[in-house]
Simulated scan of single mutants.
Amino acid sequence: MSALIYLCAAVAEIAGCFAFWAWLRLDRSALWLVPGIASLCLFAWLLTLVEAEHAGRAFAAYGGIYILSALLWMALVEGVRPDRWDVLGGAVCLAGAAIILWGPRAA
């Protein structure tokens, strides 16, 4: 369930940040900020649903999911195909996120 929550949180964060990008960098209307802010609020709420004992660990693990999701956003929304270094970096980050989230912990 955590993986699904992280994926939804990543989409919400990237969409919210993209709304600001569109407003400031692509000369879109300031009305883009309304769904952007709502999306960023959704992102923050979703992270609170992750089953983790400590917020810092949940946030650190999320970082890997975010990076992979950002590369997917680049490919699907912006139409830019990730190169081999993007893919390798995303895989390393995803592995790191898995270690942080599911690594064995001392009691």
Rank of each mutant, 00 (worst) to 15 (best):
F18Q: 15
W21E: 06
A22M: 12
W23N: 09
W23L: 09
L24V: 13
R25E: 13
L26Q: 14
R28H: 13
S29K: 04
L31V: 13
W32Y: 15
W32H: 09
W32I: 03
V34R: 06
V34M: 11
V34I: 15
P35G: 07
G36N: 04
G36T: 01
G36I: 03
I37D: 04
A38Y: 04
L40Q: 09
C41R: 12
L42E: 07
L42Y: 09
A44I: 14
A44S: 14
L46N: 05
L46G: 03
L46P: 01
L46Y: 03
L47H: 00
T48N: 11
V50D: 04
V50F: 02
E51K: 15
A52Q: 11
E53A: 13
E53M: 12
E53I: 07
H54S: 11
H54T: 12
A55E: 15
G56E: 07
G56F: 06
A58C: 06
A58D: 05
A60M: 07
A60R: 01
A61N: 02
A61E: 02
G64R: 01
I67N: 01
I67Q: 08
L68W: 01
A70F: 07
L71C: 10
L72Y: 04
M74H: 08
A75I: 09
L76H: 12
V77K: 09
V77T: 11
E78M: 15
E78N: 12
G79T: 07
P82L: 04
P82G: 07
D83P: 01
R84W: 14
R84E: 14
R84V: 13
W85P: 02
W85F: 12
W85Y: 12
D86T: 03
G89R: 02
A91H: 08
V92H: 06
A95T: 05
G96Y: 02
G96A: 05
A97W: 04
